[in-house]
């Protein structure tokens, strides 16, 4: 029989530590598949976040560094500047990348740092128990917005991808979801393009992955996927936000 789908070898053979229905595992599977297909596992270095996916280094079979909350882009910069021929990626949640680490991600993008960042947006702080994140939707109830997010008090959900797109140094930015097989195929293609953007020296690349958090949203996995499609995608539209064809280092 032909293989339709098998677990990629670059994803280590152990069960994920995530809640049922959480898409961290799916996102990491796609990253592992692309690394495997590009044949770069031997020279790829991942930088983990602080959050639910702090244990990403337990799952993808490449070298890893994990530091402080939100600082992965700076750590990745240090690694890449030290070893320019390695493929370096950061993997971060919304609190990590779009709250405490906002300065680091903006400047890594603006420098056109040759790294790839994966931004898992589930609209809450997951590991700490479901508090408001910068990406929490208006009216969305969380542990710290019990009456729903009020823009008068908390401001607006943060569209990081769009924000980074206007910077000269960013070369490829896309937002994806993993709620349907068709979306998953598109997401994998975007992840591949992001790594290639880095490897071809075009500039910074970021993939924002909309992800359900059934546990902290108080929903079943299926309800969470439906809520993501109904509520999150209209505010965080899917697609390629920026594709820079030319080499940003050569063309100012």
């Amino acid at each position: 029989m032909k293989v339709v789908f098998e677990r990629p070898k670059t994803l280590l053979e152990k069960p994920f530590t995530y809640c049922p229905g959480c898409h961290h595992g799916l996102a990491q599977r796609l990253i592992a598949e692309v690394i495997e297909e590009l044949g770069i596992a031997d020279r790829t270095i991942g930088v983990g976040p602080i959050g639910c996916s702090v244990y990403i280094y337990e799952f993808i079979d490449v070298d890893f560094v994990v530091g402080a909350h939100g600082r992965a882009p700076a750590i990745a910069t240090g690694i890449k500047r030290s070893l320019p021929d390695r493929v370096v990626f950061s993997y971060q949640g919304d609190g990590d990348i779009a709250a405490i680490g906002t300065a680091e991600i903006i400047h890594v993008a603006n420098r056109g740092e040759l790294i790839t960042s994966f931004f898992v947006n589930n609209a809450v702080f997951g590991m700490t128990g479901g508090q408001m994140a910068p990406t929490t939707l208006l009216g969305q109830k969380t542990k710290t917005t019990p009456l729903g997010r009020d823009p008068q008090v908390h401001g607006f959900p943060f569209r990081l991808g769009e924000c980074l797109s206007v910077l000269e140094g960013s070369a490829y930015i896309a937002r994806v979801a993993l709620t349907r097989p068709q979306f998953i195929r598109q997401a994998k293609e975007c992840i591949r393009k992001a790594f290639l953007t880095q490897m071809e020296g075009k500039g910074f690349s970021l993939i924002e992955i909309l992800s359900p958090c059934p546990t902290n949203w108080g929903m079943s996995p299926k309800e969470a996927v439906d809520w993501l499609e109904e509520k999150m995608i209209p505010y965080f539209p899917l697609g390629e936000l920026k594709v820079k064809g030319c080499n940003s280092r050569e063309t100012p």
Partner: peptide, 16 residues
């Protein structure tokens, strides 16, 4: 962009 970023860049480079 800040001393915070600088020391974590040091962390990344030191790790190599």
């Amino acid at each position: 962009e800040s001393e915070v970023a600088a020391i974590h860049m040091v962390y990344g480079a030191a790790a190599t």
